[in-house]
Each structure stands twice: as C-alpha cells, then as structure tokens.
Design a protein around this nucleic acid. Structure first.
Lengths: 249, 249
DNA sequence: AAGTGGTCTAGACCACTCT
DNA sequence: GAGTGGTCTAGACCACTTA
C-alpha cells in the first residue's frame, strides 16, 4: 500500500491526488467505482479532512472524479480526447495523442522590431524587439500547418534563440524549463477560412480549401502576455477537441 | 457596505464570491487592483479563513483573480470573450455577447427510434425512443447554421416537447429549469469542412465554402449522456473562442 | 438511524516578498 | 521583521441518501 511521505516537501493533498490519479491510470480504480469515503481516506493516510477534501476538489475540477452528496465519490470515465482545453497542450502533444508523429521545420527565426498589428496583442510598443518564429508543422512528414509566433523579448530576455533553431523543438518546454516561465492561460479565437494562394502553395492544397485559422495570445500567471501566434491548419488534418464544463461551485 | 447574511441559505463562501464578482463587474474593483488581504476579509465579514479561501479559490479558478504568495491577491483583466469553454454556453448566449440577435427556426421535432450511428453517443439502444430536434440558427434573421440534436428520451421523460416547438427557445434553459437536469460537461470535436450541396442550399453559400462542423455530446454531472448534437456553421459567421488554462494546483 | 459529502470554525506553522 | 498567501489540524453541524 502506497503511503504519504511527510518528509516529502510536496504538499500532502498533492501526494494524495497523485496517488489516486495513478490508481486510476493503472486501472486499480475503474470508472464508476466508488472511492473510499473521506473518513476512510483520513484514517488510512492519517491526514485531516481538509487535506482529503482539497485533493478531492482538485480531482473533481480535473474531471477525474465526481461527488454526490449523501452517496459517495466515484471515478469518472476517461475522456476520449484528453481535454485540449484546460490543459493548454501544444501542437506536438496533441498529435502524439492521436498516435501520429508531429514535426516542425523552422522557416524563420529572427529578432525584429515589433510590427504595428502585433503590438497590441503583446503589449509591446511598435518597433521594440520581438522574436519572430515561423514553422511549418508536419504530421508523419506531411506539411499540415503554418505557425507564426511572436515572442515578447522583454519578458523572455533569457530565451536562448539557438535552442529554437533546430527542427522539432517544443517551444513551451523551452519556455517553462529553461526560462522558468509560469504559463497561465491562452486566449484563442478559431475560424474556418478558404486557403489563399500562398497558403495553398505552402500546404499543398487547392485554392479555396477549408483551413482552420487560430489566433492565440498566451500569458503568464500574472497576466503578462508573452506569445502571440497565428496558426493555419488544413481542415481535414485537424480536429479541435474540447471538454466544456458547466460552471458551478 | 454590503454584508453577508447568515440567515441566507446560500453558503457564506458563495455570498462572498458573488459580492466580489459584483464589485468587479460594477467597476468598484478594477483590473490589477489588490483585493483586501485574507485577514482583512475575515475580519470585515466575520468569517473563518477557510471560508475566505474557498471563495478565493473559486474566483481564481474562474479567472477573476490571481494570487501571488507573499504579495497579495489581484483582480484579473476581463476576458475579451467570455470563455466559450468552462462555461458551456449555448449558441444564443454566444451570439448575444457579440451584440447580435440570435434566432432559431424549428425544422423538425419528433420522437423517433434511435438511429444506429447515434446509439453509441447517447448510450441508447438502437430503436429505443430518442427526440430529434432540428433547427436552423439565424443571426440577425440570416441563416448561419444548422443544428441537429438527438435527446436521450429515457433521461428526459419529463421533457415537454411542446415547449420546444416554438421558435427561439433555449433548449438548455428548458432542460435545466423545467426538467431540473444537472448539466455537467460536453465533449466537442470541431473541424473545418467544405459545404456539400444540401448544406450550401440551406445556408445560401457556394459549394465548397468553408464550414465549421462541431460534434457535441453533453452529459449530466453523473456522466449520463443526454444530448448528441451536430452543428454546421458558416465559417465566416462564427468565431469559436476559448480560454485555455495551464494545469496546476 | 447511520453514513455520505457540504459548510464552517479557530487555530497553527510555513514559504515567500518587501522594507 | 512584518505581512502576504499556502498548507494543515481537530473539531462541529448540516443536507442528503439509503436502509
């Protein structure tokens, strides 16, 4: 039986969360099964009810469990698609989930003066330095999308540009691990458009072919925008999945 | 100064939440402003710290505030688009937010035997009764989309079909208020496709025109699917907005 | 009546930020 | 060192479900 380690600097409620998550993933706990009651968890791990409930609240928020007053706590069904949302996953993570091989070919990487139409999105004055990072995204070697990223150079002074020059690098991994950036949230707007001439050439599709266009602005937990991004993807090569939740406490 | 009412059956933490939300909406508290400290809120409303923190946790989860250890709690910037996600709003709520007028014209409303390709989505055996509800959605009187909804009749036995027959009815309002249904979450998959012949005729767009296609399965809090829905919308008349959050406790 | 989760209290100590 | 939010405890009472 796994236990909780009080010497471990990881908070007790998080240890409990991870323990239960691992039991769900490994199949020890199956969808629909009742979780031990809060009283049992308290006794078993020798923690307070508050700690148990904090872990439960997080698991519920993440859609791993649901709770019914008077009845108990139960394991949720796994989501068919991991939520694209509330997870803020990157393109690569997305494609891998489908069992395909993502890739990226760097087209441009340069420090440029901030263009007028980008300035507002990043909160950077026109002409101030930003990083332009353009990549063709591939799935199983076939080009399917075009990503144009603008990075706020003021926020990302420590960003090692050379690390991005190689193909198949995950931008978010570099930002979180090497720049210690705390990614908070992203605002996205998505629409369907018809491919124009340059896009049809880049992606090898006919003129007028349906393409998904996503605009994204990503910010830190302190609400400082650091990335503005335009994404074009072949309509037939991309499904945008989401799990929406009804608000309520 | 607004206070908290202990006679009110609404939980204290929820009253506190609503109070702060209303101050944000009304502009008394502005983005970037610090909230009173937890100790101050405790004293001012004469509640325990747990209660204050539960309210804060919910406000943070909803993106209204952010907290920085050692510094304080601050008001977030309002989201340009209310989150389509994590809110699970309906088409009507969506369009109204853009300041336009949503509408719906009922094309079909009938109880039918469950078709084979719907059975799996709703967890209803083939041939068992489901409600088919098809509507043309309009914005400022112009047709922009086609919604085809299948409702699980077993779960919604109390559903008054006649209430749906009128144009411009909000399905979710009827379900929540009249059937007392507890809506939990929806799984959506979205893609861009080219309009085929019947669709181009219904929506008055050229053949091959980019169209957004959304498949949605909606479930109760207890994970019982009650709605499966196919949505086609003109690509140029619909922007899908989302705020994605990075996971973390 | 017994058992479940939901709300709430009064207190404690810790980690982090600022001065 | 003083002040902030983060973690944790041990208790209490309530609302709801089930038997």
């Amino acid at each position: 039986m796994s236990l909780i380690d009080r010497q471990n600097p990881v908070p007790l409620y998080l240890q409990l969360e991870e323990l239960i998550k691992s039991q769900i993933v490994s199949g020890i706990l199956r969808p629909g099964d009742p979780l031990p009651t809060e009283a049992e968890l308290q006794a078993r791990f020798n923690v307070s009810r508050t700690t148990v409930r904090q872990a439960m609240a997080n698991l519920e928020r993440d859609g791993m469990i649901y709770r019914l007053q008077g009845k108990g706590t139960f394991i949720s069904k796994p989501q068919k698609s991991q939520p694209h949302l509330s997870l803020l996953s990157s393109f690569s993570e997305e494609i891998r989930r489908d069992g395909r091989t993502p890739g990226a070919r760097v087209v441009q990487l340069a420090e440029i003066p901030c263009p007028a139409d980008i300035s507002g999105h990043l909160g950077v004055d026109e002409g101030q330095p930003v990083v332009l990072y353009e990549r063709i995204r591939t799935v199983d070697e076939k080009p399917v999308g075009l990503h144009t990223v603008y990075l706020n150079r003021q926020v990302l002074q420590s960003l090692p540009l050379n690390r991005l020059r190689a193909d198949n690098v995950s931008l978010y991994e570099v930002l979180e691990q090497e720049c210690r950036l705390k990614i908070g949230f992203a605002d996205e707007a998505l629409e369907a458009i018809a491919a124009d001439e340059p896009l049809s050439r880049t992606l090898g599709i006919p003129l007028g072919f349906p393409v998904i266009f996503i605009e994204r602005t990503t910010s830190t937990t302190t609400e400082v925008p650091f990335e503005y991004c335009k994404i074009y993807v072949r309509g037939d090569e991309f499904r945008y999945r989401a799990r929406l939740r009804r608000n309520g406490d």
